[in-house]
Design a protein around this nucleic acid. Structure first.
Length: 232
DNA sequence: GCGACAG
DNA sequence: ATCTTGTCGC
């Protein structure tokens, strides 16, 4: 069955109607203002999958040197399928577990996925930010919603993305990169600060906290698979 | 109304 | 996201 057909069926379910209403409600609780004070510790969280198991890694780095400060991980069972615009329903449990294991809350958390650049203005980054009450930034590799505008300043690498009449995010092409990454507000941060922090922590194509979390989650998956194989 | 759709 | 060979380019 084609994925889009599956989505069509799921979209008609009462459960998703309820989840959509919940998203719209929680979206009204998102704060688009900076908490105040420069971020000293920035963390990134990402998830890797192996069938019905999910491996989540949260990596905290020093905002200036980008040196790793702490790594926390969590493994759990997948409890919801991937359905576009409902990503949080699938990833939140693992993300919460990993982030709570950090000995100290990061000043800002980068989440792999969109924030306000979402149909209900409540992507996974907003979901994580509101539920855990921490500043978050949404960073995605592919677009989901919104329309690309013309670069405003002289910066051709930063394209504003409009959604519902407002600039809700940016498509930014990192130096040397061929494709852009999409940045939007998650919670308790301004769009300007979100973009600034992403720029300042990006070395290659993705912000260091997320690049490290991606590597750590995949590494954890490999190790667990090797252990399983060894027990057989 | 139709199509597209983060990870 | 994950699967997965060959192939292009530094």
């Amino acid at each position: 069955m084609p994925a889009n057909r599956f989505v069509a069926i799921m979209t008609a379910m009462p459960l998703l109607d309820r989840l959509r209403r919940e998203q719209r409600h929680l979206a009204s609780l998102v704060t688009e203002e900076d908490a105040g004070g420069a971020a000293e510790r920035i963390a990134g969280v990402d998830v890797a999958y192996d069938a019905d198991r999910m491996y989540t890694a949260a990596v905290c780095v020093d905002a200036i040197t980008l040196a790793v400060v702490e790594v926390a991980m969590a493994t759990s069972a997948v409890s919801f399928p991937y359905i576009p615009t409902y990503l949080a329903r699938r990833e939140f449990p693992g993300i919460e577990a990993a982030v709570r294991r950090l000995s100290r809350k990061p000043d800002v958390l980068m989440v792999d996925g969109h924030g306000r650049l979402h149909p209900a203005r409540f992507g996974v980054a907003c979901d994580v930010g509101v539920r855990l009450d921490i500043p978050t930034i949404g960073v995605a590799k592919h677009p989901l919603a919104g329309r690309a505008m013309k670069p405003s300043g002289g910066d051709k690498a930063t394209i504003p993305i409009a959604l519902g009449g407002d600039t809700r995010g940016y498509a930014w092409v990192p130096p040397g990169a061929a494709r852009p990454i999409f940045v939007s507000i998650g919670h308790r941060i301004s769009l300007a600060t979100a973009l600034d922090l992403v720029r300042r922590t990006t070395q290659s194509r993705y912000p260091a906290p997320l690049a490290l979390a991606d590597r750590a989650s995949k590494e954890m998956k490999r190790n667990e698979k090797r252990e399983k194989g060894g027990k057989r």
